[in-house]
């Protein structure tokens, strides 16, 4: 299974990026191989609008089934849901590897709604 984490840096010690759509990058953790892969979020960062939608598309194409991030807006959330990705929010303040460990030990609950207001309703 692949877990994607919004990250401020490119290694597992980096802090979780609280932003999803405009996250610095994503790390994809593969539970089968216990290894990380770095995925660019340039499309999300550069988007004039709908950054969260673009970011959701990016991690969906990587085959991620879980997303761990800080916050998630309504459009990003519906896109992630349509892609069948489980969404975990509130992981800001942790490092990427801590967030993965916390997820593996079952201490996170999946969210069923976005936690921030969108720019345009």
């Amino acid at each position: 299974m692949k877990i994607s984490i919004s990250s401020q840096g490119s290694n597992p010690d980096s802090a979780v990026d609280p932003r999803f759509g405009r996250a610095a990058q994503f790390l994809i953790y593969d539970t089968d191989t216990a290894s990380y892969e770095v995925i660019s979020n340039s499309q999300g960062q550069e988007a004039a609008q709908g950054a969260g939608i673009k970011a959701a598309e990016t991690i969906s194409r990587c085959g991620a089934q879980v997303l761990i991030t800080g916050h998630c807006g309504p459009k990003a959330f519906s896109t992630l849901k349509a892609a069948g990705i489980e969404v975990i929010i509130g992981a800001e303040g942790l490092s990427v590897s801590q967030a993965v460990d916390k997820y593996k030990s079952g201490q996170f609950d999946a969210t069923n709604s976005s936690d921030v207001r969108g720019h345009w309703k």
Binding site: G50, K54, A56, E57, K75, T79, A82, A83, G84
Partner: peptide
Amino acid sequence: CSNICQYNAIVSLKSKPLVFPEL
């Protein structure tokens, strides 16, 4: 559709594309 859209108003995942009319 998702590739050509510059406004991220339509996104295609595994299923039917999702449309965000306001974008």
